[in-house]
Structure formats: C-alpha cells, structure tokens
Design a protein around this nucleic acid. Structure first.
Lengths: 225, 225
DNA sequence: AACAGAATGTGATAAAATAAACAAAATGAT
DNA sequence: ATCATTTTGTTTATTTTATCACATTCTGTT
C-alpha cells in the first residue's frame, strides 16, 4: 500500500468512509460508485476518488467499488488489522463508560488493563478488563508491549501521568482530559477528544444561526414600517 | 461584532484559543502577543492575527492582547454568554458521565433535564438534573425553550429520537451516537463526537510511524550488509 | 462480438487556507 | 520629548486543498 504524505483532511475522512461502507454492507449493498458515496456523505465524487488514490487503486472503471473490498482496504489503511494493545488510565466516570460501552475490539484494539488510584476500584474487573493500581503501571508497561494509552484521569494528573507513560515507551495517547498535552520536544502522538471544544463549536454555529434569524427579522420589520 | 463567512478551520481553533487564554489567566499572565500565543499553540502569529481579524480588532499595536479582554471577546464570539438551554437524551453510561462530570455551566450552558426509557432511572435526580421519561419529552420541548439536545441514546434510537427532537423545534444536536445524523433535507445543526473516528485517526498515525520505523530499520540492515 | 453507457484514476485548473511582508501605531526607555 | 522597538491589522504571495475535465477501461446488453 502506498502512503505518501497524505494530508490530515484526508485521514479524518477515512473513518467516515469506513462507517458508511459498514452501513452499506449492513443494507446488503455490495457495489457503490464514488458519486453515490459522495451523495450520501455530502462530498464530491471527485474528492472521494482522489482520497482513495492516495493509497492505491481500489475501484474498477465502469463498475465502481466493491463494498467489502473497499471496506477491507480502508480498514487496512487505518491500521485496524494490526491488533494494537491499549491500556486505560483513570477509571472514573468517563473511563468506566469506555470500558463498558466502547467496543475496542470492533476497531482492532485490545484493551488489556485499566489503572486507577482509588482503592475501591483497584482489583475489580469490568467487562473482562482488570483494574490495577497506578503504582503497578510502570512495571506493567515494561513487561507488556503497549501501543496506546487512553488517558481519562482528572485534570491535575494529566501531565504527570503522560510523563510516566512516555518514560515507559508509550508512543500514542488518546486524550480525554481537557488539557493540551502536546509538549514542544515530545514526539508522542496525541489524539484529543475535547468535549468542550466540540460543544463550543456547536455553540458558535447556533449563535450564528440565531444572529442570522434576528437580522432577517429586523430587515422585515423595517420593510413593513 | 462582525461575523462574515468565517471558515470552519477558524471556528475550530477558537475553543483552543479560549483554553489557552484561561491557562494564561490562571498563571497570572495578563498580556500576550500573537507570536507568544503562536509558540504555545503551535501556530504562526500571522494565522492567529488573521483569525481574530475575522471578528474585530482586539489587540493593540506595540502591546499585544490584554488576556482578560481577549478571553471575553472569544467567549462572546463562541456564544458563551447566551445561556443556552440543553436537554440530555439517554442516561446510559456516557449520558450519566456527562451529567456528573461535564460542567455545562462552565461553557455557558444550562442542562435543564435528562430523559430516558428505563423505569429505574426515571424520576431520579443526578447532579441537580431531573431524569424524566422520554414519553414526556415532546410536551417538555413544547413548554420549555431548548436550544440544543445532547444525544446519548443507543444506536437504534438515534434516528427516531432525532426526528422527535426536530419535530418539536430543536435546532441543534450534540451527537454522541456513532450514527451519521445529518439528513439531506434537514436544517438541524449537528456536532458529532465520534469516539471511533478519533481512535481510528490515532490508529492511522501510529501505523504510519510504525511503517516509517520499519522502513528505516530495513534501510539500515541493507547498509550494514 | 460489438458498442453504448458508466465510472475510474489522474493531470490541469480553480478555490481556499496559510504564511510572509509591511505600513501604521502604540510602548517604553533614555 | 524623542526615538528605537514592538506588535498589530491588512495586503500580497505562496502553498495547500478541492474541483473539474477527460482519456481510458470495464460493464452489460443487443
């Protein structure tokens, strides 16, 4: 598979393609064209073809794309067949929700262990995932190859825990804390899930629409006058 | 405040500016230049100035930006001073986590009520938020002006609940389900929090780095040979 | 088997986003 | 009070991203 300097925008679209392809599969659709895909995702056919062409030639002229094949290709591009191993740090509300409800294995991940400081959760097992003490974390990381850490600790613990993780070889963090983790000289890969950023974007769009409505109303009031 | 066709990228950076400004405030910093802000956020000073200039002139030549003032301006741009009212649908694991841990009021939102189908949660109160039955939802929406709905229901309920919400005047949805809500003819504003999309992006970047490492190792092995 | 219709992959073109450059204006030190 | 320094807001240039257009190739029907 080629992999030549692909832009961020392209990468962010890949999971959406995957999701749509799964949906089509579930509907029994086995063949799809870039224009159909574009219509359903709100993208131009051209963009879709160009996105895929970053990684290879997955379609067939005059036919389109074979859904299961394309799905497999996109999954491979995303690394879903690499069986990455993950640990979760912080079994609070959000951490707990992830263990119980987020199906890591659906996306090619294996959640091997969780860690927390609270004595009442240490030693328990949720959804087949054992909760260990954070004190055991360094040794665990040294002994078990771990590709990503899911960070769901309270705000104050975010930076120290990140230091610990990187010091023990973790190279990627899925960050659920509302803290900017990326440090200047660190090479760790950070993917943020900032709830507040998302909500504030929504807030912006709602405000924008409200203002447009108000402006329209004002214009009409003036006209009637 | 001006608001003239601002690109999505700009809007997505605003919450990050807000977060950084809060951090600076907490550190007692009251003055910041675009270059300092840029250094701390990994952006060019030019981009930061251009972003702000979409909405007005908030700085002062030779001085920079007054942190509290700029913070207030960004907050206003994002609509944080409009006291939007929100309801939550689906008090499962993620919904519960949001009620208990996500401080809506910090971002200018008021979570007025939650709704669920499960008899054992209906009637309870979490963090001052009453949980009502979904059967009461239509009437509630008709009687209480509601700006956004937080959707945290199981996959199958996502579309029907969305229809219900839009039918009763809700114009914005913060979507935590893994379902593509945006329908062709609907004008509802949807902001997605797709955990899986985020994890898969991370998976891509990890795979990319792994491949680079492997390629480097192969090159070196060849050289030594 | 031939041919009209479809749909890809890609090179060219247009649009958008980012970065650089600079004039204007305020600061703060001498 | 003056002047070198700083830093903005904005214009211009550059880079990146998305769209268009089309030659090529496969499909499926007659």
């Amino acid at each position: 598979m080629k992999r030549l300097k692909v832009s961020n925008n392209v990468i962010r679209r890949l999971p959406r393609y995957l999701r749509k392809l799964d949906e089509l599969s579930a509907q029994g659709v086995s063949r799809v064209s870039s224009s159909e895909l574009g219509k359903q995702l709100g993208l131009t056919p051209s963009q879709i073809r160009q996105d895929f062409s970053c990684f290879g030639e997955f379609g067939q002229q005059g036919y389109g794309y074979h859904v299961p094949t394309l799905r497999a290709q996109v999954a491979a591009i995303l690394g879903m067949d690499r069986n990455y191993r993950a640990v979760l740090i912080g079994v609070g509300n959000i951490g707990h929700a992830l263990i119980d409800n987020f199906c890591f294995s659906d996306w090619g991940f294996q959640l091997t262990a969780a860690f927390d400081v609270k004595p009442e959760v240490v030693g328990t097992v949720f959804n087949k995932v054992p909760v260990l003490s954070v004190e055991e974390l360094p040794q665990y990381l040294d002994e078990h190859e771990t590709d990503i850490a899911v960070l769901a600790v309270p705000k104050d613990a975010a930076i120290p825990v990140t230091r610990l993780l990187t010091a023990h070889g973790v190279e990627a963090i899925w960050n659920f804390t509302n803290v900017e983790l990326t440090e200047p000289n660190s090479s760790v890969i950070v993917e943020n899930v900032h709830f507040s950023d998302s909500l504030l974007s929504l807030s912006y769009f709602v405000s924008e629409r409200q203002d447009e409505k108000a402006a329209r109303a004002a214009r009409e009031a003036r006209r009637e006058h």
